[in-house]
Design a protein around this nucleic acid. Structure first.
Lengths: 145, 145
DNA sequence: ACAATAAATGAGAATAAGTCTCATTTATTT
DNA sequence: AAATAAATGAGACTTATTCTCATTTATTGT
């Protein structure tokens, strides 16, 4: 555990410090998206707020952390160590839950083709994409009864 | 112009007031996504900041305005009067430009099929989706030279 | 292992987006 | 035109994020 957080840092030429290890470990506790608040609560006073934001910035810079905004405008953050972890998100507007979803290869391939068309049309270089789906979890999620 | 903004309001049982007309007209000046700052500058002191936010909330409630967050965390807002205006967004990380893009019917159909699968798998009711693409506009955009 | 140097941290101040309050104005209904 | 209800403006307030700077911690060369 602690090894692999150290490895992430050294592999990316980022100095190994306690706050960075603690934040990485907190992020690894769940592979699902987490709010800053979650993290802060989990870390308590072991990492200062300013340091937490700085470390998250560092992790984004070395490309192991993705950040996005949920429909209720909360910033959400998720470790993404491998390109093969590519996935999308499903948002429940009732309980705020965010679920990781994979889409089929067939779909991803067609999307790649569409993206190539868009690149040509707008003379863009596209390096990432994201599909977001919004709805309500009809009954059985842990938060909505 | 002014007629159609009034029509939008009356069609949705929202009382017709000057700030609402002014905000709608500012939104209609460009069919592209706009930041709150854009709007505020354009409106000057004709609409108070608190009123601007309230009116934008009203327009979201009657479903003629979509709001989202760009990768640099700016809130962006866009009129969407017809379901047939369905489209997606392309973000330039150099200049911040946001471009509306349509994807092919073939793609949208396959995405609908994927969404049905996701609905079943997670017992969700999905009512909206969004494809976001990120990259850089390689040369000719108005902001990047 | 030990200085010297550079980088990262903690604490809290500063900033900025968005919300809230409440007295006044404007729309709507009769 | 009066009465009622709703919307507005102005600015205070809240809260997420960034910034500053003195102190601590990591790294590098010897």
């Amino acid at each position: 555990m602690s090894e692999s957080s150290r490895k992430i840092l050294s592999d990316n030429n980022v100095s190994i410090t306690n706050p960075r290890i603690l934040v990485l470990e907190a992020l690894m506790e769940s592979q699902n998206p987490q709010t800053i608040d979650d993290l802060q609560n989990r870390l308590g006073d072991r990492v200062a707020k300013s340091t937490l934001y700085r470390v998250l910035g560092d992790l984004k810079k070395i490309n192991v952390l993705h950040e996005f905004t949920s429909p209720d405008n909360t910033t959400v953050v998720e470790l993404l160590l491998q390109d093969s972890d590519h996935h999308h998100h499903l948002f429940c507007s009732d309980c705020g839950e965010i679920i990781d979803v994979g889409l089929s290869n067939e779909f991803e391939q067609l999307l790649s083709a569409e993206i190539k068309k868009i690149e040509r049309k707008f003379n863009f270089q596209i390096n990432d994409h994201r599909v977001e789906m919004f709805g309500t979890c009809t009954d059985q999620c842990s938060n909505c009864k």
